[in-house]
Amino acid sequence: MYDARIRRSALACLAAGESLSSVSRRLGVSRSAVRAWRDDPPPRVDPTACPRCTDSTLPSAAYAELLGLYLGDGCLSEHRRFVYALRVACDDVYPNLITETAETIAAVNPGRPVHRVQAPGCTQLVSYWKHWPCLFPQHGPGRKHHRSIVLAHWQREVVAHFPELFLRGLFLSDGCRVANWTTHRTNGEVRRYDYVRYMFFNESTDIMRLCQWALDLLALPWRMPRPNALSVARREDVAQLDRIVGPKS
Rank of each mutant, 00 (worst) to 15 (best):
Q124K: 06
A102H: 06
H153V: 15
G169H: 08
L125F: 02
R156C: 04
H146L: 13
L97F: 06
L172K: 15
A102G: 15
E157C: 13
P137I: 05
R156W: 06
I105Q: 09
R168Y: 09
S148A: 11
N187A: 12
R112V: 15
L165Y: 00
W132Q: 09
A179I: 06
H146A: 09
G188D: 03
A89W: 04
L170M: 15
V126A: 03
S173G: 12
V88W: 08
P163Y: 06
W154E: 11
G142Y: 02
C122N: 11
S173K: 14
A106I: 05
Y128W: 09
L165S: 00
L125H: 11
L151S: 10
E164I: 03
Q138C: 10
H161M: 06
N187K: 15
E189H: 12
L170P: 04
C176E: 14
G121P: 05
A152Q: 14
L165F: 03
V178C: 09
G175H: 02
R112H: 14
T99F: 01
A160P: 05
F171L: 15
P110A: 12
H115M: 08
S173D: 03
E103D: 10
L170C: 12
V114T: 10
W154D: 07
R168H: 08
A89P: 02
R177L: 14
P163I: 10
V178A: 10
P113C: 10
E157Q: 13
T123R: 10
E103P: 03
S148K: 09
G140Q: 04
G111P: 01
V178G: 03
P163M: 06
R112G: 01
K144S: 15
D92Q: 12
K130F: 03
I149C: 05
W129T: 08
L125R: 09
G140R: 06
W129K: 09
C134E: 13
L170W: 05
V108K: 14
L86P: 03
L125E: 06
R185E: 07
H139Q: 08
C134V: 02
R168K: 12
R147F: 00
L172M: 10
V159Y: 03
T182Y: 05
R156E: 14
A107R: 13
V108G: 13
C122E: 15
P120T: 13
T123D: 10
V108A: 12
W132N: 01
R147S: 07
V178L: 07
V150K: 03
A179R: 02
L97W: 08
A89G: 01
A152I: 08
C90E: 06
A89E: 08
K144I: 04
T182A: 04
N180L: 05
N109V: 14
C134G: 03
Q124H: 11
A102T: 02
Y94H: 15
T99Y: 05
G140L: 07
C176F: 07
S127M: 02
W129P: 04
H146E: 13
L167I: 07
N180P: 02
R87Y: 00
Q155F: 06
R168W: 04
H161N: 09
F171A: 04
H139L: 09
